[in-house]
Simulated assay, not measured.
Amino acid sequence: MGYALHYYDLVLVCIAASLGLGAGIGYATPVAIEVSIAVLGVVAIGFIAHALFVNGPVDEPEDLTDEVAVEEVPQVLSPVNTAD
């Protein structure tokens, strides 16, 4: 079973990359590190806002009211032991 990158995986990579790029610019150029991280932190906030509000994890607010059966929860997240 292979793993495929999904949209939210890429969002996390973009957040880390923008903050890392800010640190790199701060160290490698005469731009103050505080300024470069703050500016590229705004870019990271843009990625977060897009992931939450433009391409949110649910399609409709009614999706938030759906109940999930315990059997549907992945085993690594489930507090209930199964007989498997």
Rank of each mutant, 00 (worst) to 15 (best):
L21K: 04
G26S: 11
E34C: 10
G20C: 13
S36Y: 07
A32R: 11
I45V: 11
V39Q: 08
V35F: 15
L21W: 06
F47N: 04
V58Q: 13
I37K: 12
A38E: 00
V35N: 10
L19W: 03
L21V: 07
P57F: 11
A28T: 07
F47Q: 04
V31Q: 03
V42E: 09
I48P: 00
A17T: 05
P30Q: 10
A38K: 12
T29A: 11
P57N: 05
Y27A: 15
V39Y: 13
G22D: 00
T29M: 15
A23M: 12
A44K: 05
A44L: 10
L21A: 03
F53L: 14
L52G: 05
V54C: 13
I25V: 14
L52N: 01
F53Y: 09
V58W: 15
I33T: 06
H50C: 10
L21Q: 03
H50M: 11
L52T: 05
S36K: 01
V31I: 15
F47W: 03
G22W: 03
L40P: 00
V54G: 06
I48N: 02
A28N: 09
I33Q: 07
A49G: 10
P30A: 08
L40R: 00
P57W: 08
A51P: 08
V39S: 07
A28G: 11
G56L: 08
A32D: 09
V39E: 05
G24S: 09
I25G: 06
L19D: 01
H50K: 15
G46M: 04
G26F: 10
T29I: 10
S18P: 04
A28W: 13
F53K: 07
F47E: 01
S36I: 01
A49R: 09
Y27E: 14
N55K: 15
V31P: 06
A51F: 08
Y27S: 12
L40N: 01
I48L: 14
H50R: 15
V39H: 06
S18H: 06
A32G: 07
V31T: 08
L19R: 02
H50V: 10
P57D: 08
V43H: 06
A17R: 11
G24H: 01
A49V: 04
P30R: 10
P30M: 12
V39K: 11
V43E: 01
G20S: 11
I45K: 04
F53Q: 05
V54L: 15
V43G: 05
G20A: 13
A32Q: 10
T29F: 15
F47M: 02
L40M: 11
I37H: 06
N55I: 09
G41D: 03
Y27D: 09
V42N: 04
I25K: 02
A38T: 00
N55C: 13
L21F: 07
P30D: 14
P30G: 09
A23W: 05
L19H: 02
I48K: 07
A17S: 11
V35G: 00
G24I: 03
